[in-house]
Design a protein around this nucleic acid. Sequence first.
DNA 1: ATCGTATCGATACGATCGTATCGCCATGGG
DNA 2: CCCATGGCGATACGATCGTATCGATACGAT
Lengths: 201, 201
Amino acid sequence: MDKEARRLDVADALFRIAAREGLDGVSMRTVATEAGLSLGAVQRYFQTKDEMLHFAFDQAVQAARARLREIRPQSGGQTFPEALRRALLAFLPTDDRRLAEARVWAAFYAEAAVRPSFAASLDALDGEARANLRAAIVQGRQAGEVISDRSPEALAELILVVLDGLWWSAVRRPAGASTASLEEVVDTAVAMLSPGGADCP
Amino acid sequence: MDKEARRLDVADALFRIAAREGLDGVSMRTVATEAGLSLGAVQRYFQTKDEMLHFAFDQAVQAARARLREIRPQSGGQTFPEALRRALLAFLPTDDRRLAEARVWAAFYAEAAVRPSFAASLDALDGEARANLRAAIVQGRQAGEVISDRSPEALAELILVVLDGLWWSAVRRPAGASTASLEEVVDTAVAMLSPGGADCP
DNA sequence: ATCGTATCGATACGATCGTATCGCCATGGG
DNA sequence: CCCATGGCGATACGATCGTATCGATACGAT
């Protein structure tokens, strides 16, 4: 029998509950019911609730890391602004499936304010994103596609801050709402990072 | 006896707990103990936990609204970039007291993802901030202090997004950490909104 | 065929939750 | 002086939580 596959099933059930009701709605029993299992079965795969939560959280972190790596290779022939725009929109919850994922992330994010082990993983993820972004900026700058009057570190930090802000703004949007204003903000932000994209005398 | 003052005392106790342990740590009993009262006393002032939470949340919203209004008057003689920089830094948790407040806000923010009545208040606050910011941008633009190749709405949205992102980045920072990188991001963002502040050919 | 083991449902236990109720006590009007 | 009333501590109750334990069932090895 495939133990890891069952753990993933349980984690999926947890995600569905967290997306609907937040982490408050997550208990051993509710997760078991959502997964179509008994309490005892869930307890076999996760001996404590903490272990279950950590597994689910790590799963989410791992998925985010994968998405991050998927972006990284300077996918052929794109200029930096194009690639950045695509990357930003890829991370934003612009459809209902992503919105559900994002709600789960929001719950974990809040939990990280109280649970240091969660915060550490988020910091690591942040650092990875920062490094990737910095590398892309340096590369884009050599091609003259990125403004050069600020350090790559400051620009990377700013972009990540904009991404975070956009992301939270999108999370609070009701399901099915328009994403037009989101894309407009993305465009504005991207334009400001491109030479000649800002207002020049 | 001043009933409203006692309600504020209880709400303060709730804030202290939420800052330390998140909303999970908030119960009728823990709040009562933190406030130096008995469970029965708290129940006199708030008949249900929901009522207590709503009161505390409304209190936080009201405080934020007051801070927002405090910013609004184009405080004499400042240029738009200066005023914006000051306003952004005013909202960010740059000291330990503000950091505690911000942790409470983060908890409420996450709760809003699940509790529509909270989300409605946040939306209203957001709308107010957006309107104020738009007015300031229009005014600053007449003085030639704001870039003019984007609509005031898009710029206001972008600034709010940056503020949100900065805010979350600050919340996750450990207490007492340096705020230098925060200020650098603020400076970068403000510079990009000022004519000639961006990289021009 | 029998036994050991893995799987899992059922149930129990103590703790904590929100809420409701009861009773003590102080205080002020009659 | 008495007593009614409002403030508040103590306690009770049912529900739900995380966790532990026990018994039934299925299955492969001896």
